[in-house]
């Protein structure tokens, strides 16, 4: 781009093109983060399910902490790798929502050390995270994420109707519904936008 004066038509064309370049697409680049959390969540919860079924040893529940222990370093790595160069208002709001959800999830998990019967942890976690997914979807106005979030909120209540190992199995299913499927759809949408 050179430094020169413009005609009115050229001005309009530049404004339209530059705004179009940045519109929404930045927030829709987050598919890989959904996939990271989704697959870690799925594999850890399935591992706990099968280990509990085989051994019946409830110390296997410690493995839940593998989710944040793998997820957070992985997310930091991905964010550094996919450095975006620009932050939109919507992107910052979504980031802040997930920071709050992360803090609340950590506090809820830690409270389990004090009283593990205080509240149904799997239901609470599923409801909390699905709420975050629904809010993120509404902010970026992306239907698959909105549907996944609200479907997840509704299905969270199914956990309350189940007992024991079945709860864990349903909990692992959430990873597919609210993170893995939307993550793949987001990536596909992002690739389509970049090609256009």
């Amino acid at each position: 781009m050179e430094e020169r004066n413009l005609t009115q038509n050229e001005s309009l064309e530049i404004i339209t093109r530059m705004i179009k370049e940045t519109r929404n697409n930045l927030e829709k680049d987050g598919g890989s983060i959904y996939l990271l959390w989704g697959y870690v969540w799925l594999f850890v919860s399935l591992a706990i399910y099968f280990l509990l079924m085989k051994t019946g040893d409830y110390r296997m529940q410690w493995l839940w902490f593998a989710i944040p222990l793998i997820g957070y370093p992985g997310m930091i790595y991905l964010l550094k790798k996919e450095k975006r160069g620009a932050i939109t208002f919507a992107g910052r709001v979504i980031g802040n929502i997930w920071i709050v959800i992360g803090v609340v999830a950590a506090l809820l998990s830690l409270y389990m050390f004090i009283d593990y019967k205080a509240f149904p942890i799997l239901f609470t976690m599923a409801l909390l995270i699905n709420t975050g997914v629904a809010m993120s979807g509404l902010i970026i106005k992306f239907k698959p994420i909105i549907i996944a979030g609200f479907l997840g909120i509704l299905l969270s209540f199914v956990i309350l109707m189940l007992n024991g190992l079945d709860q864990i199995l349903i909990f692992s299913l959430f990873a597919v519904i609210m993170l893995i499927i939307p993550g793949h759809i987001l990536n596909a949408a992002s690739r389509k936008v970049k090609k256009a």
Partner: peptide
């Protein structure tokens, strides 16, 4: 001017 207008057009759309 071409470049300054382009820069400002981007910056009005992002934080």
């Amino acid at each position: 001017s071409q470049l300054r207008l382009a820069v400002i057009s981007i910056l009005v759309s992002v934080e």
